[in-house]
Design a protein around this nucleic acid. Sequence first.
DNA 1: CGGGCGGTTGATAGAACTCAAGGCGTGTGG
DNA 2: CCACACGCCTTGAGTTCTATCAACCGCCCG
Lengths: 234, 234
Amino acid sequence: MKKVGNTYCQNCKARLSNVFSNLTLEELDNISINKSCHLYKKGEIIYNQGNYLHGFYCIEQGIVKIYKIGPKGRKQIIKLAKKGDIFGYRSVLSKESACTTTEVLEDAIVCQISSNILFDLIYSNPKFSISMMKLACEELGEANSYIANLAQKSVKERTAELILNLKNDFGIDENGYIGISLTREDMSEIVGTATESFIRSLTELKNEGIIETKGKKIKIKDEPKLIHIAKGLE
Amino acid sequence: MKKVGNTYCQNCKARLSNVFSNLTLEELDNISINKSCHLYKKGEIIYNQGNYLHGFYCIEQGIVKIYKIGPKGRKQIIKLAKKGDIFGYRSVLSKESACTTTEVLEDAIVCQISSNILFDLIYSNPKFSISMMKLACEELGEANSYIANLAQKSVKERTAELILNLKNDFGIDENGYIGISLTREDMSEIVGTATESFIRSLTELKNEGIIETKGKKIKIKDEPKLIHIAKGLE
DNA sequence: CGGGCGGTTGATAGAACTCAAGGCGTGTGG
DNA sequence: CCACACGCCTTGAGTTCTATCAACCGCCCG
C-alpha cells in the first residue's frame, strides 16, 4: 500500500453511474480534497473482517475481492468490486465492525472517504441518501438471490451462473474471452464449493462444448445453453 | 385479508425499537392517518415475488414469513418478520419488483404505508434516513453471513443455529420452550434443506440430549453444546 | 535446476436428496 | 360416536452429489 496523490472526483467517469452522480460540484470538491488515496498491490488487504472502519472506499482502478472467512476457515467471496464501486459503507452505516475482508485482486487505486463526510452528505443531500439506500437495497436483493441459489442449485448450475455474471460485469475482450482472469480457487470461493468440484464442473461444461478455456481465460461458446443450465432447468 | 381500522402509531410500543423511533409526533400522525391496515389469516399472501409494491409494510401483530421461490420450485425462507418489523421497503427503495413472497404464518395485523410517505420522510428527516440505511445495512450483513453459512456449514450445524436464532428472536415460554411453533417444513425452508434431512438433524440433536421436542415445541437443554455445534466446531 | 503454485484427475468416503412407506393426531362427515 | 381423510412427522433404503485426500503435471520464478 502506498499513498498516492488525490485525484479529482469531478473528472472520474465512473462517478456518473454510482452514488456520486447526485452530488454537486462543491460536494465533489469537498470529497476530492479530503479523501485519501492509496495504491494497493495484488494480495494486499485493505481491511479485515472485524475491523471498525473510519470511512468507506471507492475504487478508482483495479479489482477488489470482498469475502468472509467462514467457520471452517474457508473463504466465501461475496463480491468482486471494480472501478467505480464503493464498499465498506455497510459497516459505517450500520455502525458494526466489518463483516468481510477486502483483498486486492488486480493492482488498485482505492480512495477512502471518511465517515463524517458520508454522514454529512446524508444529512444535507436527500438525493444522495436515496441513492445510497437504493444501492444497499439492490445489494440486499442480490444477496437474497445468492442465498436461494446456494441452497437450491448444484455446483454446476452455480458455475454456469458465475460465468454469465463475470461476462456481464467484466465484458469480453477482442477474442471473445471474458475480461477478467481469476484463479480456479477464487472462482470456487465465489461459487461456494471446493476447488476440485468447481474444476469438474468447468470440465463438464467444456466437454459439452458450452465453454472453452485457455489458461485462466474463459470463452462462452453456447450462451443459450449456459443460461439454461444456470437457471437450474437442466 | 380484511380491512381494519387504523391504529395510532404513536401508541405502538414496537415503534420505539424500529425505524419509527426517530419520527416526530406530527410525522407519526401523518402515517397513522394515511396508512391502511389489514387483518390477514394464516396462509394468506401479502404480496408475491415479482409484484411492484406501492408502499412498505409494518407488522402490528403476528408473524410473516418472507421467502423466495427457487429455480426448482422449492421455497427458501429469508426471514421471519414479527411485531414491529418492517418489510417490502427494499423493493420500494430499489425501485425493483419484489424479490420475495410474503405469507402470513400467524394471524397478523399489517399496516401498509405508501411509498410517497416513505420518500417524503427520507427527504425531510435525515435521522429517519440514517435509521433506514442502518436497517438495510444490518440486513445486508445478516444476508452475507447467511451466504457463508449455507456454503460452509452442514445441515446439522445450520439446524443448531436456527434453533438458537429462534430462541433469540422469539424468546422462551414459562416451560422453557421456544416461543414460536413452526412446522418441520417451514424450518427446513429456513435451513435450506430437504424436510427429511432437517428432521434427521433434529433427531440427532435430541438423541445427544441437546434439545427436546414436544410436537412443534422445541426446548434447548444444553445451550453451550448447541452453540458449539452451530459454530461449526464439532 | 529445484521448488512452489496452480491446475487436473482419480479414488473414496461421507453428506444430503429422493422416493416410499407408515404412524400419529385432528377434524369432519356419516 | 366412529371411521376416515388429511396434514404433518418420522424412518428406511437407495442414489446422487460433493468434499477430501492423494498424486501428478506444467509452468514460472528464483
